[in-house]
Amino acid sequence: MIRVQTEDFDVGRELAALTDGRTDIGGLASFVGLVRDFVEPGGGTGDGNASIRAMTLEHYPGMTEKMLAEIEAEASRRWPLQASLVIHRHGRLLPGDRIVLVACAAAHREDAIQACSFLIDWLKTKAPFWKLEDTREGERWVAAKESDDLLAERWLKK
């Protein structure tokens, strides 16, 4: 299931809903992405060096849902999943806010964990979202990272 929304989501409730009433699921893996308050590199830990005041996520309505559905379908082709869920927010978010939830349920843990990892790696390089950071120095579009491309490429079929 794919959801693209401005509202927050309740992780516990969403994960419970995936497995409620099911007795065929042995493992549920999930990933939650959050808004960080520091700019890479260097970093900070909310200790006063925080430089990101907010983050606005822009997306391409229509293509976003289509790409997420394609990526989810690809995960189901590669691993025997009993259920999967991708929720991605857009709009203005604050440090600490949840951005994305990816969850995969399978009979066995390794399928669930691998599929979850695949989903977030491909989402980051294929789903049309863009992050605009509001920093103390002004607004800044986040640049795509080569490390994200490399993480996505490891799932390409040889």
Binding site: Y60, L123, K124, A127, P128, V142
Partner: peptide
């Protein structure tokens, strides 16, 4: 036709 920078979601 849509034109945009490399994507940065997730």
């Amino acid at each position: 036709i849509a034109l945009f920078p490399p994507v940065t979601g997730g």
